[in-house]
Structures are given as C-alpha cells and as structure tokens.
Design a binder for these strands. Structure first.
Lengths: 228, 228
DNA sequence: GTTATGCTTCGATGCTCATCGAACTATGGA
DNA sequence: TCCATAGTTCGATGAGCATCGAAGCATAAC
C-alpha cells in the first residue's frame, strides 16, 4: 500500500493549525499560549491542536517548568511547509499583491533556520557572483572556492559531512520570487549573524533586525556589492 | 500577510482526494470515472472533488469528447506530493512494514514522470558509479562526463536549458529509502524507455512492465552492472 | 500555606463538508 | 431516431471536528 498522505495534509489543512505551523517557521520554539495568541484561539483549543500536531510528528515538544515549548520536528517538515508556502503564494498571486505588508519582514526574515527576504536574496546573488555557489536551474551547487571561502570563515566541513541534510539548497522566496540559501550553510550563516551580533531576533515576528553596524559587517563579510 | 497554506493542504487532506492525487502520481491523465473507481466513490462525489482540485489549481483538466481527463497541474505539485509521501511513509513506518505489497510496484514504477522502485534506485546508483552524476548529500550534481553521456544518447541540452525545472534531482523513494533520479533527465529516461519499447505502461497501476529483452537493453544502455 | 499562571480534560454546541440518490445535460454510436 | 455512457446539479443526510466554558491539575512565586 501507498502511504496515506491525507493524514499529514489534513493536519496542516486546518487554518488554525496552519497559522501555528507558519509561526513556527520562524525557527524559534514557542509556548502553547504564544501559539494560542498567534492563532487567535483559546487555550483549550490550542491544547487540542498541539496534541494532534505532536501525535502526527509534525512538532516536537519540550517541557520546561510549567511551560511547554513547541517547535517543528525537523528540516523535512520545514521544507514541506516551504513548498506549500510557495505554491500557495503562486495560487493566490492572481488576487493579492506580492509579499508581506510588514516592511521589516520584507527586508530580512527567518525561514525556519536560514535568512530570507531581500537580504537573503542579495546574499545568494553575491555568493553566486563570486563563484562560491553555482545556480544550475533551481539546483544549487557548492564550488571548491566556496568551500575554501567558508572554511576561512570557520566552517568545519568534516564535522558537517555526516549529516543527512544537504549542504546547500536553494529555497524559493515567496515574497521575492528569487532564490535564497537554505541547507546547512544557510543555517550556519544565520547562526553566525546572531553570534557576531550583526542582528537581533525580533520578539514576536520572523523579522531579523540588523544593526547599522552589523549590516556593514555582514555586507563586507559576504562581499555584498551594492550596500543599501 | 503570509500565504495561507491551509487551503491547499486542506484539499490534499481529504482521504478521497488524496487517493485521487496519488493515483495521478502515475503521470497519466485519468478520466473522472477512472478516478471515481480508484477512490471508491460515486460519480457525483467524484465530480465535486475534482471541481475543487481544479479550482485549487492542483489539477488541470482537458475535455475530449464526452470524457474529461485530469492530471496534476505540474511538477511542483508532483514534488509536493512526493515529499508528503516520504514524510508520511516515515511517520507510519513504526507500524507498517516498508514498501508496497504489489511486487511489480516494488520493482519499477512511475513517480509522476520518472522511474522509481528498485530499478529506479539501481539506475541512480549506476549513473553515480560511472561518474555521470555525483550524489552530494541528498543533493545531486550533473557532471561533465554525464553531460557527454546523455548527449551521445540524444539529449539536446540547449533545448532544455530554458526550462525552470532542475536538470537533475534526487528523489527519495518511499519504498526503497534510497535516491532515484527525478528532474528533466529523469523524465527523459522514462520517455525513452517507452519510446524504445523497453517497457509498457500498466493499464491500472503505476507499475512499469519491462519485457525481458527491454530490460537487457536498458541495463546495457545505462551500464547497470548487476543485472537481475 | 496562598495565590497566580500554564496547560489539560470534559462535555456541549454548532458548523462544515463528504456522501449519495435522483433527475438532468451532453456526447457518441447504432 | 433512440439508446448508452460520461459527467453535472441539487437537495437531504449525517458524521466528524473545531470551538469554547467550566472545572481540574501542575508548577512557580510569595
């Protein structure tokens, strides 16, 4: 027998649960009440939904004191949601103008565990321009010089090698309709951005708030040409 | 605003519609009655579901005489369904033994527009062994010698180049849990298999029925080593 | 201890939607 | 022309499920 895709699709197919999942695309673990607020429902309803999502292995949960932190089960789920976001954006594109209304979201936001938005696209283009990655028809390839470049930044490729996740993956951006960088390297860059203090996480949105100074450093580090 | 993923997910989330969509993963266009039989429902119910799927842009429809032929809207939808199949297989894997019960499906079947199953996996491995493709952590890269090889088989890369779809893409197989080859080249190979008469489409399943002679030719053409 | 907060369980309510039978339209063949 | 087949429309039925209030449990703060 074929696997039954309707079970998982049905879990995502409820608008309340969908908004919870989309909120968790920010990559941060959120508590039950936060998710209830996000989805605009009461606590009992949220509890019921979250139970189903955990049972369906879309979320994992971590108990901490009297709080329960929920997050996406892994990058496969995040990728699934991403492709759903893209297809949904394409479908509804006839009606609504493209992109998020919040200008901060448009500029730079988190896409599960990597950088998206205008800045994410600019980063991707810069890496491609410098020959670190090659964009082969929506497939993204990592070059030797890219390997050298990221090694010089401190990436340990031997450590990474064992993981199942792709090193480097293009991820189509539903606001920009251009590629940005996902995969392990994409994740590494975002982590680095926070560690270096280039930007801070916004408390209740997916926005990535760069400081002026941090943005300059970021542009220099990844050799972005047109600074803005 | 974010795109609402619940609409599309909800369309897939009904078990009846899901079985229709999975049936259409065979790549063939099917009529309304065929799909009704597949999903084990009456004609009116099928009509209602198919309308919704077309309205949601998951399917496209072509009218031919008194028949209506339905097929998946495009490869993006097929890829979405594929990742749903894989995640679903992983989730239910704890309970059920892996893979399809029909041994013919297990051997070689269609996955939208390319070859899957044991033979699909063997093909992928052979191409990798001969250096035509490189499997870089679940990312698949096309090499120069692979380009030469497929050019010698008659693939016109200049023609292909314009298309948005990736040339070459690994697609995780829910029955084998190994990679097989998707993308434009994957599609080309399957088309070639039929055109050369190596195999025939099964009427009412996703099985690809190789003739003995066709299988030998296939093995030789793509340099599969262990013939079986 | 007492009070506040986070989350869950239970039961009741109400809405959405899949389903089918019956009647209808459209196309093709005899 | 008449019949068979493919698909649709309509209305009725019924089941599943999201939702919430109220009450209950668990943890933390005081």
């Amino acid at each position: 027998m074929q696997p039954d895709i309707s079970i998982i699709a049905n879990l995502i197919g409820d608008s309340t649960r969908a908004s919870m999942l989309t909120a968790l695309m920010g990559g941060k673990a959120l508590t039950a009440t936060e998710l209830a607020l996000e989805a605009d429902i009461t606590a009992p309803t949220a509890s019921s939904h979250l139970n189903k999502l955990v049972a369906g292995q879309l979320l994992i949960v971590r108990k901490q004191g009297r709080h329960k932190y929920f997050q996406l089960q892994g990058f496969e789920i995040a990728e699934l949601l991403e492709s759903l976001l893209n297809i949904s954006a394409k479908v509804s594109q006839t009606k609504i103008a493209t992109g998020p209304s919040d200008p901060r979201l448009r500029k730079s936001r988190v896409c599960y565990d990597h950088l998206a938005g205008e800045l994410g696209v600019a980063l991707y283009d810069a890496l491609a321009k410098n020959g670190y990655i090659i964009n082969e028809q929506s497939e993204t390839i990592f070059t030797e010089s890219g390997r050298d470049f990221f090694t010089s930044l401190g990436v340990d490729f031997d450590k990474i090698k064992s993981k199942k996740r792709p090193l480097c993956k293009s991820c189509l951006d539903w606001s920009e309709r251009k590629n940005h960088l996902a995969g392990i390297i994409g994740q590494w860059i975002l982590t680095d951005i926070y560690q270096q203090g280039f930007a801070k996480k916004d408390i209740d949105s997916r926005a990535v708030l760069f400081t002026d100074k941090g943005l300059k450093h970021f542009n220099k580090k990844y050799e972005l040409l047109n600074t803005n």
